[in-house]
Design a protein around this nucleic acid. Sequence first.
DNA 1: GTCTATACGCGGATAGAC
DNA 2: GTCTATCCGCGTATAGAC
Lengths: 201, 201
Amino acid sequence: MTSVDPAAPPSGPATLPLSEAKARIIDAAAALFAEHGVGGTSLQMIADAIGVTKAAVYHQFKTKDEIVIAAAQAELDRLTAAIEAAEAIMYADGGAGRAREVLVTRIVALAVERRRMESTLTGDPVLVRYFASHAPFRAIMERLYRILAGEDGGPEARTRAAMLTAAIGGAVMHPLVADLDDDVLRAHLLHLARRFLDLPE
Amino acid sequence: MTSVDPAAPPSGPATLPLSEAKARIIDAAAALFAEHGVGGTSLQMIADAIGVTKAAVYHQFKTKDEIVIAAAQAELDRLTAAIEAAEAIMYADGGAGRAREVLVTRIVALAVERRRMESTLTGDPVLVRYFASHAPFRAIMERLYRILAGEDGGPEARTRAAMLTAAIGGAVMHPLVADLDDDVLRAHLLHLARRFLDLPE
DNA sequence: GTCTATACGCGGATAGAC
DNA sequence: GTCTATCCGCGTATAGAC
């Protein structure tokens, strides 16, 4: 039915490992971002957290944005892994339905697992702008939507995909479900997401 | 079926009108926020836009956050109006189903209408923190969720309400539907939202 | 390759004159 | 209500020590 993609399914091996100094910085930065938000975290705070000066941090990353992006990249890699798992099924034979099932399950799990950080990742203007404009991210999103919406890139399919990803990402950080255990939240989220996609229960 | 609420349905008449100077400031600020984001808009930019100094702006609003909040308040008032319309139906006799229908229709319309500003409103950390902590906003959200989730405040109902509001708010600013006309987007959004709530087509 | 010292400009914020 | 003047912290940036 669906003709094979001209290009082989991409299998990008995530990102290159970081230097020691860089790794320490993004570790500290990620923790601070989650607590104070990106805008509320200064280079000074990051430097203090690992016991160096601002300039030392600046030497590793030329701008604050670079730190933010590097910290987000690790999360993006996990999403990429989920997409590739779903693509593997789709390109093999599992069919679009099964691929969607796997993708949604993993995205829900990811979102719940990261529910405290999620607001930092999806809510920050710096990241939004960066991700919206940078090609690699757009390519990943393209693959994600292709699985969710199928070859049919019609308005309704695209709207549905947009709603679903927004629903999952936005719901986990919603005050209304703040008191739910991770397991409970994940179960309901998954159930409703599958229903939204007309996947069999 | 549902017993009447002990308290009469609240009918808060939005917000008090602003002074001339204040109104000019938030008008200019709202335009700049939509274009550059909250974080990318400085007091200097706002001051320049209306031809005064930073200090003059400061005289009207003690902090930048106050400006952001005032600019957001107008949008919030529109949401409140939608909620009150739905509540009126519910408290009269229309029933929860009809109330939900009205509420979802109006929220979808609002979100689409504001799709360019939506990211500023829901995405900014300042607003998120403010709205999450401030009582009046929480009260409004409480009313919204009560209509969507019903008296049943169970985990699934709450998860569903959280997903729906996140889906609508997040979908309108999604790159995937950026090229859709307002009318088309609104129609699909409404259709899918109603389906998600099990409302009759 | 990693850090310290130091500086510049901008943005948020305040005090007090007109 | 608006201004001038001023303060402080932060992001940015460079030079150079280890």
